[in-house]
Computed example of a mutant assay.
Amino acid sequence: MHEQLITPELRQWIIEQSSAGHSVESVLSAMKASGWHEDTALTALENTLKEHAWPLMQAGQPLPEPALASGATALWAHDREVRVLVSMARPRVLVLGGLLSAQECQEMVELARPRLARSETVINATGGSEVNVARTSEGMFFARAENELCQRIEARIAALVNWPIERGEGLQILRYGPGAEYKPHYDYFDPSQPGTPTILRRGGQRVATLVTYLNTPQAGGATVFPDIGLEVSAVAGNAVFFSYALPHPMTQTLHGGAPVMDGEKWVATKWLREQRFE
Rank of each mutant, 00 (worst) to 15 (best):
Arg135Gly: 07
Glu169Leu: 01
Leu116Trp: 05
Thr48Met: 01
Glu264His: 03
Gly257Phe: 01
Glu46Arg: 14
Pro55Val: 03
Arg11Val: 07
Tyr176Asp: 05
Gln61Ser: 15
Leu49Val: 09
Ala44Tyr: 03
Asn238Pro: 07
Met88His: 14
Val232Cys: 04
Glu274Ala: 11
Pro197Gly: 03
Pro226Lys: 02
Pro184Phe: 00
Pro194Leu: 08
Gly221Ile: 03
Trp76Ala: 15
Arg152Gly: 00
Pro8Phe: 00
Trp54Met: 09
Leu68Ala: 00
Met261Lys: 15
Glu81Ile: 14
Pro62His: 00
Ser192Arg: 15
Glu65Asn: 15
Tyr244Gly: 05
Asn238Gln: 06
Gly71Cys: 02
Gly221Tyr: 03
Glu9Met: 15
Leu210Thr: 01
Ile228Met: 05
Arg11Phe: 09
Tyr213Ala: 01
Gly35Pro: 08
His37Pro: 14
Ser137Trp: 01
Ser87Lys: 13
Pro226Phe: 02
Val224Gln: 05
Met108Gly: 02
Leu45Asn: 04
Ala30Ile: 10
Ala180Gln: 04
Ala155Glu: 09
Gln218Ser: 14
Ala239Lys: 03
Gly127Val: 05
Tyr182Met: 01
Thr121His: 09
Tyr213Thr: 00
Lys183Asn: 10
Ala158Asp: 02
Thr136Ile: 01
Val211Lys: 09
His78Asn: 15
Pro249Val: 05
Ile228Gly: 03
Glu169Ala: 01
Thr253Gly: 08
Leu96Val: 05
Asn124Tyr: 15
Phe277Gln: 11
Val161Asn: 01
Val122Ala: 15
Gly139Trp: 03
Cys150Arg: 07
Val27Lys: 05
Glu9Asn: 11
Ala77Pro: 11
Pro191Ile: 07
Ser23Gln: 11
Gly35Cys: 10
Glu130Asp: 13
Ile153Lys: 00
Ala59Asp: 13
Gly71Val: 07
Arg152Pro: 06
Pro217Asp: 07
Ala112Trp: 02
Ser18Ala: 15
Ser34Tyr: 12
Pro64Glu: 04
Ser101His: 11
Ile228Asn: 04
Ile165Ser: 09
Glu154Tyr: 07
Thr126Lys: 06
Ser34Asn: 15
Met140Tyr: 06
Gly177Ser: 11
Thr196Leu: 04
Val207Pro: 02
Pro164Asp: 08
Met140Val: 10
Arg202Trp: 12
Leu99Phe: 08
Lys50Ser: 15
Lys183Pro: 12
Gly203Asn: 06
Val93Gly: 02
Met88Leu: 15
Trp13Leu: 11
Ala245Glu: 00
Glu138Lys: 12
Ala268Val: 00
Leu116Pro: 06
Glu148Gln: 11
Leu5Asp: 13
His2Ala: 14
Asn132Arg: 09
Leu10Tyr: 01
Arg92Ile: 06
Glu264Tyr: 00
Thr209Tyr: 02
Gly168Asn: 06
Cys105Gln: 08
Ala117Ile: 13
Ser233Val: 13
Leu68Val: 03
Arg11Cys: 02
Thr126Ser: 11
Gly60Asp: 03
Pro191Lys: 07
Arg118Asn: 14
Thr209Leu: 00
Arg206Ile: 06
Gln103Cys: 14
Ala44Trp: 08
Gln218Gly: 13
Thr223Pro: 04
Gly221Thr: 04
Gly221Glu: 00
Glu120Arg: 15
Ala219Pro: 01
Gln106Pro: 13
Arg152Lys: 10
Asp187Ile: 12
Gly35Asn: 13
Glu264Ile: 05
